[in-house]
Design a protein around this nucleic acid. Structure first.
Length: 637
RNA sequence: GACUCCGUAGUUCAACGGAUAGAAUAGAAGUUUCCUAAACUUUUGAUACAGGUUCGAUUCCUGUCGGAGUCACCA
């Protein structure tokens, strides 16, 4: 039996091949289920007996005896076995674990599949709007997308990291318009720019987006006041009748329902504002490539890109290929028009184009506005098609986008299917949960949004303070110290955001995010640094003769052996959290071992060198895992 | 209102239908002439509620209650 096959696989194979002999029938492979042996039970590997009880028609104990003694006969690595309430626990010999340790030690790329040995997958992440600076939610998105891409690479896939830059649309026109109308003009006759204000480009543009929102609300208030006074002659009759209908609904409603109605009225009034009308006109001009609008658009977008570039660099994320909405929306529009001819879509009287998904239990969805301009959905169709054109070997696209857009992606994939794109089934929405603050939801209107740049800066400052408190910095120059604090701060932040199952909504507590104890990035980084120091002091790794492993050592070998499977699971579930939870378990076990068992002081050279090798392989797996999370590990800290 | 997702120690998170539901943190008590104490040890404490399926349910199904999201000619 080859040493590269795990004991579980060996057991599975023997049971499967000897099924007729043992059970009298050919069993299904999935009947053979292993699980972690509980701490208080003796043994290293546990087989669940219940599934066999029915076919064997005997008690779990009898079944366990039969299977256990059969396997012990066949596999010399099995030292002994015991049965506890339906679970068959095998005690595996020390030699087996030692052989496995040696095997791991010889594999520099342990746990990783051969690069580019599997299909090509595109991972989309980030894709922010270009009218607002990045915030905490984007940090989760970016760290998640980047990590999932790395995890897929570790699984042997070729990966194309990408994002769609939402550089056009009504929202962009809003900031453009607000800047044109409301920016103060300085002595030189210039409006505000990143250069003359010192503001980061994305922050400056974001400021005008907020300004637009403020101004449109003011205008809407005046309109509502008009309506309430009965001065309705200046407004569209449809809006007025809708307003009257909504007002009539108000009587007898509770506070919550009233607020809902008021919001609708506000939306109605916003549609009547001159500001929104101007923004819409600007969008039409933009789609017609009006030179003046285009110049303004290019200028402001470049400010944003410059600002974002700085943020991405700090985050430590990158992209292989960028898609711009401004490039893909026309393709989307063409496809929609084509689909209209094919009868997938239909046109309403006012010229707007829709798809009817009511037979699928969904709604009708707009694809082109009555003025012919495109919406989010239109460009997403174009982008997807464009991507498959650019990468003909693509086996799938993963969209890392928040779960507030679940419905959008359901509809998008369905439309692509209806348009006849066979690859539509390979599109996957990696839907992650929102990030909450201890104070509740982040709300831009209430100013509770945590800015990404600010947060990253704060966290590195906090890491510096804590690091200085600890000491351990002798002989390092200020540049090295700064780099270390960045590694610790950013590592803590990334680990904090990635350790939670991406699908779940999570709580971000700023204080906890840079904790050094417990399930944190620095806790893991510290273990790495300690091992590094240990190896350095030892004067190098040496080979060793056969030794007997202590239980603490066997526990570590066992968890190291789980690593390849952990990478597979993380890839299958697109979940960095699987990796994070794994490293944490590994580090806890290592710390227990390190605390309880002397290494450098050990007199038996074979034992000492085995322990050093074991430690070295723990640090190897820590480094690999942390890199999959996009986290660096420090040589010392 | 319709649809979707979520309810696990005080708090933040785990648990491919499997053993006595794990951690971390907070609280309490300890460990350093010894390889980095950013560490380790001990201890207190939870499956929202009611049914059902199953040898076995935190996990699957139904209902109740509670929370979130979506239902735009926004993205």
């Amino acid at each position: 039996m080859s040493t590269s096959v795990s004991i579980n696989d060996q057991i599975r194979e023997i049971l499967f091949e000897n099924s007729m002999l043992l059970f009298g029938i050919q069993i299904e492979v999935n009947l053979i289920q292993f699980q972690k042996t509980r701490k208080e039970v003796e043994g290293d590997v546990t087989l669940v007996i219940f599934p066999f009880v029915k076919t064997l028609k005997c008690s779990p104990i009898e079944a366990g005896e039969k299977i256990g003694s059969f396997l012990k006969e066949k596999l010399p690595a099995i030292h002994s076995f015991n049965i506890v309430s339906g679970f068959l626990n095998f005690v595996i010999s020390s030699d087996y674990w030692l052989t496995q340790l040696n095997r791991i030690n010889q594999d520099a790329a342990y746990g990783l599949e051969k690069p580019n040995s599997k299909s090509t997958i595109m991972v989309e992440y980030s894709s922010p709007n270009t009218n607002k600076p990045l915030h905490l939610g984007h940090l989760r998105n970016n760290f998640l997308g980047f990590s999932v891409a790395e995890i897929l690479k570790a699984n042997g896939h070729k990966v194309v990291k990408t994002q769609i830059i939402n550089d056009r649309g009504i929202h962009i026109c809003k900031s453009m318009l607000a800047w044109e109308k409301f920016s103060p003009i300085n002595a030189k006759g210039e409006r505000e720019t990143p250069a003359n204000t010192g503001l980061k480009g994305d922050k400056l543009v974001g400021k005008y987006y907020v300004e637009f929102d403020k101004k449109i609300n003011q205008e809407a208030q005046l309109i509502i006041a008009d309506w309430e006074k009965g001065e309705t002659s200046n407004y569209a009759s449809t809006s007025i009748s809708e307003f009257e209908k909504l007002t009539a609904l108000k009587s007898g409603k509770d506070e919550k329902a009233l607020k809902g109605i008021d919001d609708k009225i506000k939306e109605l009034a916003k549609n009547e504002t001159s500001l929104l009308k101007e923004a819409k006109e600007m969008l039409v001009k933009w789609e017609a490539r009006d030179p003046q609008v285009y110049l303004l658009w290019t200028t402001m977008n470049n400010w944003v890109y410059d600002g974002f570039a700085v943020t991405y660099k700090n985050m430590g994320v990158d992209f292989d290929k960028l898609y711009y909405e401004s490039d893909t929306f026309t393709l989307g529009k063409d496809i929609v028009i084509e689909g209209l001819q094919k009868g997938v879509f239909y046109k309403k009287e006012d010229g707007s184009v829709w798809i009817d998904l009511t037979s699928e239990g969904l709604d009708e969805k707009l694809l082109l506005r009555s003025d012919g301009t495109t919406v989010y959905m239109t460009q997403d169709i174009g982008t997807a098609v464009d991507r498959y054109k650019d990468f003909s070997d693509l086996s799938g696209i993963i969209y890392t986008v928040g779960n507030e857009q679940d419905y959008h992606f359901k509809v998008l994939f369905l439309i692509l299917q209806k348009l006849g794109y066979s690859w539509a089934n390979n599109c996957y929405h990696l839907s992650y949960g929102m990030v909450d603050l201890p104070s509740g939801k982040m709300k831009s209107r209430e100013g509770t949004v945590v800015d990404a740049d600010d947060l990253m800066q704060d966290i590195v400052i906090q890491a510096s303070e804590l690091t200085k408190e600890r000491g351990h910095l002798e002989g390092m120059n200020s540049e090295e110290i700064q780099s270390l604090c960045r590694t610790i701060g950013m590592g803590g932040l990334k680990y904090y955001l990635l350790k939670v199952d991406p699908r779940k909504r999570m709580m971000f507590n700023p204080e906890e995010s840079i904790e050094l104890n417990g399930n944190t990035g620095p806790f893991i980084q510290y273990a790495f640094a300690r091992i590094n120091s240990l190896i350095n002091r030892s004067g190098g790794l040496k080979s060793y003769n056969s030794v007997t492993l202590k239980p603490e050592e066997i526990e570590i070998v066992k968890i190291l052996l789980d690593f390849p499977q952990v990478i597979k699971e993380a890839g299958r579930d697109y979940s960095p959290a699987v990796i994070a939870n794994y490293i944490f378990e590994l580090v806890k076990l290592f710390n227990q071992f390190y605390q309880a068992i002397p290494i450098l002081i050990e007199e038996n050279e074979d034992v000492k060198n085995m322990r050093l090798t074991l430690s070295q392989n723990v640090s190897k797996v820590i480094a690999t895992s942390m890199n999959l999370l996009g986290v660096n590990v420090p040589e010392r800290m």
